[in-house]
């Protein structure tokens, strides 16, 4: 009898340890949050935390095709803001992002989305040429063109990345080089400085962690 009890206790302990390990491996949530009363499956009301999400969007991609959030819905994706004539941080960001892209190339649950902030010059055909010269082909990595208003609002309000026009900057624009990791429910789960190799390595480790959250 004692033996049974102790083995049950042992099993319980084991499970607790295992589940606490999983807890540790969860990525944080970024942005604003608020409490909301929701009903669970059994109809019981309870308080839940609701996190900031990326709203619906619609832009032209590098093939001049209207592309919306449907492309990324249900996928984990990495978003960033850049422009093709940027001679400072963008080449480094995309050199580093290329290594992430290559690592997850065959994973259908992972996507990449780069928004240009140069609404004057970076028309879809310019983005296409850029993508090809960078070495990107196909729909897994979308290069998106939109109006100044729509892109800048999305960057600052939703992805929490600062962007702007600045006539005193070397290339006429300023922006942060973050690579933003978004989960399948459109919540921001990570932001990595795309110019820093160690942070990009962390991103490569965090993507599988995020994917694993959905594999239960």
């Amino acid at each position: 009898m004692n033996k049974i009890i102790s083995s049950i206790a042992f099993c319980l302990l084991f499970i607790t340890i295992l589940s606490s390990c999983q807890q540790e491996k969860k990525l944080p949530f970024y942005g604003e949050r608020h409490a909301e009363t929701v009903k669970d499956a059994a109809g019981v009301e309870k308080i839940d935390t609701v996190y900031q999400t990326i709203p619906n969007w619609s832009f032209l991609n590098q093939d001049s095709i209207v592309t919306t959030n449907k492309a990324t819905d249900g996928k984990v994706y990495v978003a960033d803001f850049f422009f093709t004539s940027c001679t400072t941080i963008c080449p480094t960001m995309h050199r580093n992002l290329m290594t992430v892209y290559n690592e997850f190339k065959t994973n259908p649950d992972v996507m990449f989305v780069s928004h240009t902030i140069d609404f004057k010059y970076d028309r879809p055909y310019v983005l296409k040429k850029y993508a090809q010269k960078l070495g990107v082909d196909g729909a897994k990595w979308q290069f998106l063109y939109g109006s100044k208003d729509s892109v800048y609002t999305l960057a600052e309000k939703n992805y929490l990345v600062a962007v702007g026009e600045d006539s005193t900057a070397k290339d006429g624009y300023i922006h942060q080089g973050y690579l933003v990791l978004v989960d399948k429910d459109r919540r921001i789960r990570g932001a990595y400085d795309g110019t820093k190799e160690d942070q990009v390595e962390q991103l490569k480790k965090d993507i599988p962690v995020l994917l694993a959250e959905y594999k239960k």
């Binding site: 001679t87 400072t88 941080i89 080449p91 480094t92 995309h94 050199r95 290329m98 850029y130 090809q132 010269k133 960078l134 070495g135």
Partner: peptide, 16 residues
């Protein structure tokens, strides 16, 4: 220069 031409002078795709 390294942003475009790379740490080992390898360039960046067809961009540099």
């Amino acid at each position: 220069c390294q942003n475009c031409h790379g740490e080992n002078g390898e360039g960046l795709g067809q961009l540099a």
